[in-house]
Design a protein around this nucleic acid. Sequence first.
RNA 1: GCGCCCGUAGCUCAGCUGGAUAGAGCGUUUGGCUACGAACCAAAAGGCCGGAGGUUCGAAUCCUUCCGGGCGCACCA
Length: 672
Amino acid sequence: MYRTIQQSLLARIQAILQSKYDTTLTNLVVEQPPSIALGELALPVAFELAKRLRKAPRAIATELAAELSTQLPEGVSSVEVAGAGYLNIRLDRIAIARQIAADEHANIGGPGFRLVEHTSINPNKAAHIGHLRNAILGDTFQRLLRPDAYKTGFPVGVQNYIDNTGVQVADVVVGLVHLEGKNLTGTRELLTELLETNQRIDFYCWDLYARVSQWYTADPGQIPARKQIRLDTLHALETGNNDIAEIADLISTAVLRRHLETMQRLNIEYDFLPRESEILNLHFWDAARELMIEKGVLYFETEGKNKNCWVMRRAGTENLIAHEGTDPDQPDEDAKVIVRSNGTVTYVGKDIAYHLWKFGLLTGKDFGYAKFREYPTQTCWISTSGPSEPGHPSFGHADHIYNVIDSRQNDPQNNVIAALRGMGYTEAADNYTHFSYEMVALTPRCAIDLGYTISEEDQKKSYIEVSGRKGFGVKADDLIDRLTAAAKSEVDTRHPDLTATERETIAKQIAVGALRYFMLRYTRNTVIAFDFKDALSFEGETGPYVQYAIVRAANIFRKASTTPEAALEAFATLDLTNLLDTEEGTSLWETWLLASKLTLLIDQCLNTAEPAYLAKYAFQLAQQFNNFYHRHHILNETNPTRKILLLATAAAAQREMTRALSYLGIEAPPVM
RNA sequence: GCGCCCGUAGCUCAGCUGGAUAGAGCGUUUGGCUACGAACCAAAAGGCCGGAGGUUCGAAUCCUUCCGGGCGCACCA
């Protein structure tokens, strides 16, 4: 609502600038005045024009105000000049409140398939809190993009890339075979045994992975031999059709299933799981390689340190075309190796092939699709080298992609984008968003609490990087378990009347609310220094704070024996004259105004790829509501008109809070 | 050495493409439950926005430089 008015206002200003001054401004700034008494919107446009027109800002503002006043845009009630040249806009409170009550829907979105990739955890160990940040960011962004009852949205596919043939999986296989003495049968038995005793395979691998990582270097005399074992295992995985590869497949698939369970606890689902094994089996790379050579970005190096490798110029180089503008006899020592001298492809090479597929640029190549998991409302598909199952979707041919990958991979990501650009796929390169975010680390105090021994040097740091290789970190399920238990004990004491199942459900909703909000409240480029004290909090700026505000609103309607919808309907026919412009009316109006901004915030989050703004907004709206709740006792209100107004205010706030939370992947419990 | 990110209240963080008096939460102090649930609200204290230059009518925000911290710069993934 707010967004619509803002847009039409800006369009109007641009038109005036054009006709009156024959000029345009590329970005018009809109802000909110420091106090609502000054208006709802403020435009500093006159300052910007002052130097261009060689005229005092205030004089320009006065002219603009006069021009604007001849025909006020819809929803605007007055324009005035303030301060040194601000253009302050007052909105038509009654008209806007009525529109909010009517809940007109937004038209954010359009055509063009968008592919969001997130989670992408190596399937060799339990998910940890760093992976949670990734998945929660990706899932929230996906919710913002997707069409729903409220907005048009974009067609969206969510995929989770599975590196099932990489060194990390190989490491765990080495552990099983060489540390635990398991063969293929032994591995099958182990999986059954863990399943029957209700143990988590990913937790088992967490410890094994840490042990095998140490084992490689534990005995100095054995280092070369053990590294060779690792290399041989990796090759066996890549080749396939052998017992080692079978063990790897069993383990990685079992761990993958656990990851999906963990994420489902947080309301996170996937559409498709492309696996690296299929990138290899279906020869995506061969097709990509030919294309890269044809486009001139991939070339064979005959001299220097990269002799006998196929290389590509690195991201940041002006011209990606091989040898162009340089002496062909001088090797580019800075080039990025794509194919090693032994003929194997590097990670960046495979990634380029994969991303060419994402944009539909690998002619004739697609994955096979098989059903992997049924969610209550949809199916999750997995890649296969065999024929596709009937009714399968297709996920290539994206117009825009978002890769949720932490900032440590900035360089490799830039190389992939550079390759696309170098090959002449500039549109694809422009529509490639590396959704980068900083890592989740542990505070030294948290690490000590968990029983890790921390060096004196590390103790002085404000945070310590987690490490799967060292088994150092907080497992996702452990954190969810602790949050759920904490919420459960609180719900148990508050609601002994409810059934055990009901209390369990509510506790889970609160735990998810706390966790998802915690991961979203930080902007992407902030390192989260994880501490249980902050993460386990249900008070202050948290998810449960917002959930609680919604519960309070729900209680009002329950006790008033009405519904929010009915309250808004009654409001629609109310005579609002002089109700919203009194001092008290203004404070109510502020709640309506904030409630009207959800679409604006969604827009902002999509434009900046920053979900944190929406989390902040949900909290601010809840704060506004709680303040309102304390100031007005609705059920005791005797004046019927005022009562309708107050009920409608609560209804509008509740509706938008609930909606904001749903984009954050957080449910609103009925009671808590 | 090169690249990216960060430095704002005691602590953890917002502050959008420069704009009106720099904001939250936690913590501290004080007050508020016989009224829709106190997982809440109100109030107070707390800041030379890392330092120094510059651009501008205007800088936490842009530029330069320095200081302090983090993460990347493989024929690993």
